[in-house]
Simulated scan of single mutants.
Amino acid sequence: MKKAFLFNFDVDKQNNQIKVERSFNAPIDLVWAAWTDAQILDQWWAPQPWVAKTKSMDFREGGHWLYAMVGPENEEHWARVDYIKIVPEKFFSGYDGFGDADGNLNPTLPRNKWENSFVEQGQQTTVNILLMFDTLDDLETIISMGFKEGFEAGLKNLDRYIASQFYLRKQNKPNNRARVSTYLNFPGNTEDAFLFYKSVFKTEFINGIRRFDDIPADPNQPPMAESVKKMVLHVELPILGGHILMGTDAPKEFGMTVSKGNNIYINLEPESREEAKRLFDELSADGSIQMPLQDMFWGAYYGSFTDKFGISWMIHFQNKE
């Protein structure tokens, strides 16, 4: 039985600090990726109905993340995180501050230092977060802006993201035969699109259409919205020459957004781990890595990136059980 999510939020006014402790029902590699991959951060970082929009991200010591919180009326509030220290899958720190779309900081608003530590405990991961402020006024300004409520809402988005986006990948291929597929993300009309493709190619879905309410219920998570339950979690359709078209809905209720660049991937499933690494290394050269190639908890050796020409790829080798 899964343990309840840990969530401790402590305001230490004497030392101008906020301490947050939060657990997730996922191994450390997935939780680390969710905090350090711009495409995943955009899916959960903002509290609904706001969404996060990354302009640029260079996750390395000395690099920075420039992003906006976009409101329901398309108003934008920009922020910049400057990374200080990174220890992969263990720790990263950085300075976070408000600014503009060009990354210029606003000196009239608080800037604070984040220190995030990641601790794996079996199939759960705990993230310990320390926010340090220069003055008590800065801390109280952030609290008055609704930081606790907004941050907690964003973390719940991440719970849903883990439950939905990674659940489908636990379903293993029946063999390790090489396969190429195209993976499509839709804002809620996946079923309409795939019924259309099915009528054109005159083929049948592989194992039918999997929906979000097929995910096993988890008492630690908020109830799933009725509007989401019948959306498509995963569908596969053979088209021509053995090529597979795959798809999923990206519900706005989970804080997800579909945009140019994250709506289509070429998904390569090679026959060996060695070939997976070769393809990843060579195709990603001079490109932008979104998730480093690594062993995942659903039994796959997996990574994703955008190549130097702007094309998005997934590499997925399913280990034999």
Rank of each mutant, 00 (worst) to 15 (best):
I84Q: 15
G208V: 08
K202W: 09
L279A: 05
N172C: 06
Q124W: 06
F118Q: 13
P223H: 07
I239T: 15
E75A: 06
T248Y: 02
W298T: 00
N319I: 00
A52P: 11
L6E: 14
E61V: 11
E275D: 09
Q171I: 14
V51L: 10
L131R: 04
I264M: 14
D58V: 12
V235K: 08
N128W: 03
D29H: 15
N220M: 00
K90I: 10
I266D: 00
G208Y: 04
L195A: 01
I311L: 08
E226V: 11
G241T: 06
A163H: 02
P27W: 02
A68G: 12
R60A: 13
W78Y: 13
K308Y: 05
L136K: 14
N263L: 00
A250K: 15
K53Y: 14
G154P: 03
V258D: 01
L184M: 14
Y265E: 03
P88F: 03
D295K: 10
Q39K: 14
F151N: 05
E152N: 09
K19L: 11
N106Q: 00
P27D: 12
K198S: 05
G241I: 04
H64P: 02
F92I: 09
L195W: 08
Y67E: 08
H243S: 06
F133H: 00
F24M: 07
A52Y: 07
Y197C: 07
W78G: 07
N207H: 11
F317Q: 01
Q17N: 07
V200D: 02
D10H: 13
W45L: 15
K13H: 11
D29T: 15
N319F: 12
R273M: 09
P219E: 12
F5I: 15
V11P: 02
S227A: 13
E269S: 04
R60C: 11
N128T: 14
R211P: 06
V70M: 02
E152M: 12
S259Y: 08
T54Q: 09
R211L: 08
G242H: 03
W50I: 08
W313D: 01
V87W: 05
A300W: 00
N104Y: 07
P238M: 13
N175A: 07
H234D: 12
L195S: 08
A300K: 01
L279R: 03
P222F: 04
R210W: 11
K173I: 00
Y67F: 15
F309A: 12
D10G: 02
A276C: 06
K55V: 05
I18G: 06
F59C: 05
Y301L: 06
G122M: 08
W35N: 10
M296I: 03
T36K: 04
G287M: 03
K170T: 13
K13Q: 13
T190N: 07
W114G: 00
P47I: 01
G241C: 08
G188W: 00
R278N: 09
D159V: 04
V70N: 01
N74G: 01
N267T: 07
I143E: 13
P107R: 00
F254W: 10
M69T: 08
D134W: 02
W114S: 03
W35C: 12
S181F: 08
L158W: 05
P187A: 05
K170P: 04
K198C: 05
H243R: 09
P72K: 14
Q294I: 11
A33V: 10
A217E: 14
